[in-house]
Nucleic acid binder design. Sequence first.
DNA 1: GTAGGGTTAG
Length: 649
Amino acid sequence: MASLYVRLSRRNIVEQLPRIRCCHVSASPTHNYNSSPLNQSNKKLSNLIRSGRISEARTLFDSMKRRDTVTWNSMISGYVQRREIARARQLFDEMPRRDVVSWNLIVSGYFSCCGSRFVEEGRRLFELMPQRDCVSWNTVISGYAKNGRMDQALKLFNAMPEHNAVSYNAVITGFLLNGDVESAVGFFRTMPEHDSTSLCALISGLVRNGELDLAAGILRECGNGDDGKDDLVHAYNTLIAGYGQRGHVEEARRLFDVIPDDDDDGNEGKRRFRRNVVSWNSMMMCYVKAGDIVFARELFDRMVERDNCSWNTLISCYVQISNMEEASKLFREMPSPDVLSWNSIISGLAQKGDLNLAKDFFERMPHKNLISWNTIIAGYEKNEDYKGAIKLFSEMQLEGERPDKHTLSSVISVSTGLVDLYLGKQLHQLVTKTVLPDSPINNSLITMYSRCGAIVDACTVFNEIKLYKDVITWNAMIGGYASHGSAAEALELFKLMKRLKIHPTYITFISVLNACAHAGLVEEGWRQFKSMINDYGIEPRVEHFASLVDILGRQGQLQEAMDLINTMPFKPDKAVWGALLGACRVHNNVELALVAADALIRLEPESSAPYVLLYNMYANLGQWDDAESVRVLMEEKNVKKQAGYSWVD
DNA sequence: GTAGGGTTAG
């Protein structure tokens, strides 16, 4: 079978040889094809594409004097992988001769792009194909399945001349992507023979749908022991990882222990069903997710066969617990760190706030990928170095790396931090043109618009979300209304959210209490605060007390606010004292203002805000001597007046 | 160089 395949592909190559012979006078063309410049270039091209270096690949492609169908297909495949369908299509249209692979590639490209327009074009091209093979049918079936069009997927499944396991897997995965567990299992049961890859597809989909018990049952039923299934261990690995994701370490371990280990007896190599490196890595990942670094490390040290994934998993574990010493040590020890290892280290350094070192690592990377860029940009954003983040964002585009939704989400947060509505709007346009917005993108857009004062735009984004809005989306919009002073809208939205059975979080209540503060609703504020504790079982945090202080203070109930500060179960932070000081300023209560300002200065000795506020209070009351003494005190303490605070109110 | 399925980074 294998040799027949080789013979056939040789023949295809030979058929294309006359073009090569035109310029290369060689005695035996068949012999020389492997070492021919064309074949060498094709290999180089596919290597570049495989490692994600698309612009270098394109340069090579453009410089090639001779190209065959494989050359064109490789380049198209590169663009399809990166969802650059317009570029892929251009090459497809330009290429002199197309084979069935070229057609399959372009059809798969359209189906993997988001949006019904692309799906329709993919289908149109499928209908136009001069000939179709099994791959063509499977491409379209899985394309429809991934786009939620199970009606079409099933129609084509029934229309195709002959099914293979891939056809079934595509349908099973499609059902499970839509959460249709019953149909997926039912379809699986109609299969004439249970290929282990189908079992794997079913189990991984069930895991995604949280159906772990069902998955375990099916695995017991279909995959008991060594019954000749070549890749049975894949299915076990999937379930181990699934248990790990949901924190069921014991169940995962029990499954792991069921898989025979080479060490158990002398059967290495003979047994098909045995632990492989992925089993070890998945089990290790379970411990990592559970925060059990000791067990993870123990497993790592016991592993005979090590790969980069094992190293990377353990590195990411140390990164998660912020132990950068151990993470860097592993990074230095590992034989050949790959882009994932670098990304983990950069992410860890950025999380610790060590941006310079993170940037240093980033610049020393042999090859960056999209995630490297996203990691470093997110790091700059989280550490509030917005200018740096923007600079990296433009560098990234100059280097031909296309931003995806993770990049965009980060830079939208940057525009929020800069309160730059112009930038935010530009990014919003880029989102509309390039990605299907998901929850994080929409949330960052809502936050950006409301922080920039464009509450109407925030509301538009919120209302245009077709699919499910998660609790963060609701929080963002309620928070937007609250900080904008639109208390009625905030409270109305909160009511709607509860009616839709979206469970509020402590953040929701911070916004709700803020809305009450803006609207002067003291009673309502207390009612919501009690409801948070009694109806939703949410522990109050210091932020909630800060809001209550704000509510009381704004209404002039300054003594009540002070009493609350003295009796609350937290050490008051700067938000609490800030709320009190602001209220004292409005209600001209110098006595309590001094208490609040004093506390604030202790908490943040370098901040000029409390000084300036006190100064303005005295000035307003005409107590110029006191005002002056505040200014002198500030000078003595060497506090610099920050931008944004004015001596004149 | 194309379709489905297992572990690691944003």
